[in-house]
Design a protein around this nucleic acid. Structure first.
Lengths: 332, 332
DNA sequence: CTGAAAGCGCTTACAG
DNA sequence: CTGAAAGCGCTTACAG
């Protein structure tokens, strides 16, 4: 920076001002500095800057999920990419931290965040009771969750898709097809998605939501979808439709249905949830509920930006629910 | 840090030594400092440290791929996760940067890397001629590529799966099944994977690799697989086996085969490549070639660690090829 | 083994 | 609008 100052004939202070918005800098000085920067190929030292500004310009994307989900579920992928893009638009960088569930991994993340490496965290932890939420809260680092943080709805701002309404739309659709024995495969019940999608299902079916027609997948995996469908085929062999709480689970359910000789949608109509890539690669292709993950990502980043603006003693951000919508294809 | 020094009755220099390996520190001092750290809840300021050490402790994972691939191909996912884990084991953090192809996105990445935000980059850019490789090289930032960096094989160290041998194994397997009219769907030919997998195919089939039985997918997407299979069905309707250069492409090919009324594997044996999650969710499940992505990730991180050790004027790291192996399932 | 001190490269009131 | 100067919180020869 001294070189740039020398080359442009101004002080380091002025050079710094140019880099920080160019306020209180004369056009002449501005030009001289810009030229000098180009000539010298100067690049600012981020550590030195962070040391005084007390901001890193980085946001952590913390994925706290069991390994199965991480590797199988394409939703994380899509969310990750959209968040990365949204952050880039704010000139923020993303550091990715994955906690498979071990206490040591969580500790690493906490240490990292507390060391000031990041200004805030985008938290993706779908299962309730994850200790990392509390730990992060107590560390006083700004954060926003993706999906309702079960048990912390009031304390941690979040952005979630309207799972319940999406489930209602799908269930109503299945019923409008004339199906009367509609079953459901839920997600894990310790996730807000699992709970809300079942709630939406019940909203529509009311008392008719017979217990025998509800199967709980243990996790969001293809295999769990297969198993849940098999269970359903035993407990409610007369079912003529099934609402499955995720596309990946639905793909597994489709396999079990196929194996059992049931035709889709003729014998059994199948509805998924997510509108992920998977929905386009099943046979038949899945009728599903679209989650606007891009909107979720953008909203999360907006909140994080808001949270880190100012001196951190703000009123706290407000959570947001983004709407879902039905996507009709061949399975129902 | 002053607080810790005061609380433990030593100088800041000694406290610092404790944090940097504990060399030249008496047991008494060590204990006092550790106690003081626990009491005060002190966490080191990473910017201040980076400012003097000139290391950030972060590695960039740069994904330079067109959007389609990014969202569809699960291989990136798996690689990302394994790299994240391998870096964590070295106490390095990962910053994720995605360039969909725009020059502006590339500029952002370069600026970021040059600003010293990261010590090195893990580069994933499968298509040849990507300008980011050159740009990164000229910026003098240590890097290692995943897959052979076409056009830079000698200058950029890389870690790649043995695509060619994997393709050989698969092709030989199809032949051993008694198939005599073996076709192939290649990946894009501007990727080393696309080239090598075709080369392996030809290695085994020799002159019999009739041109009519080769179709090139334009990219690694489900849709491209469908289209390529349709083309093959027209140009070589008598085919009795097909080696597809990726599982995702193979899933698409399976759909076209199904639509055309060909049974798999009875009429047409299908072999994939990757051994990704997809291979387990197709019907029938895919016989494929396993790529040890975990090994690739670990090797990449090892190289990056080696590269950033010392003063950066080392001999440069050596590239590595990790072996692939056949995984037999129902499709062939 | 330890402390005092210089220095890493910036930003930001402060005074002009 | 601008410069001189203090200060951000560490590490690391240096001298002891």
């Amino acid at each position: 920076m001294d070189d740039v100052a020398a080359a442009s004939g101004v002080s380091r202070g002025t050079v710094s001002r140019v880099f920080n918005g160019g306020h209180y800098v004369s056009p002449t000085a501005l030009l001289a500095v810009q030229r000098a920067v180009a000539e010298t190929g100067y690049v600012i030292n981020s550590s030195a800057r962070s040391l005084v500004t007390r901001r890193s310009g980085a946001i952590a994307f913390v994925l706290s999920e069991p390994q199965e989900r991480l590797f199988e579920d394409p939703n994380f992928n899509v969310l990750l990419r959209h968040c990365s893009q949204a952050l880039a638009e704010h000139d923020l960088s993303m550091v990715l931290m994955i906690a498979g569930g071990g206490a040591d991994e969580r500790q690493r993340i906490l240490r990292f965040a507390r060391a000031g490496h990041v200004d805030a965290v985008l938290l993706v932890s779908t299962h309730g009771g994850d200790p990392i939420v509390d730990e992060l809260m107590h560390s006083n680092i700004p954060m926003v969750a993706c999906g309702v943080p079960l048990g912390h709805e009031e304390q941690v701002p979040y952005v979630a898709a309207d799972d319940r309404d999406g489930a209602r739309q799908m269930t109503a659709h299945l019923r409008s097809l004339g199906r009367s024995r509609i079953a459901t495969i839920t997600g894990p019940m310790d996730t807000s998605g699992g709970q809300q999608r079942l709630a939406g299902f019940k909203d529509v079916l009311g008392r008719r939501a017979a217990k025998a027609r509800i199967a709980h997948a243990t996790d969001y995996t293809y295999r769990a979808g297969e198993l849940a469908m098999q269970a359903l085929l035993r407990s409610a062999p007369d079912l003529d439709a099934v609402f499955v709480a995720s596309d990946l689970l639905a793909a597994g359910a489709l396999a079990s249905l196929h194996e059992a000789g049931r035709r889709v949608p003729e014998d059994v109509a199948v509805g998924g949830f997510d509108d992920s890539q998977i929905a386009l690669t099943t046979h038949p292709r899945l009728t599903t509920v679209h989650q606007p993950i891009d909107e979720v990502a953008r909203a999360m980043v907006d909140i994080v930006v808001e949270l880190t603006q100012g001196d951190g003693i703000g009123p706290g951000a407000t959570s947001r629910l983004v709407s879902t919508r039905l996507v009709l294809r061949e399975s129902a």
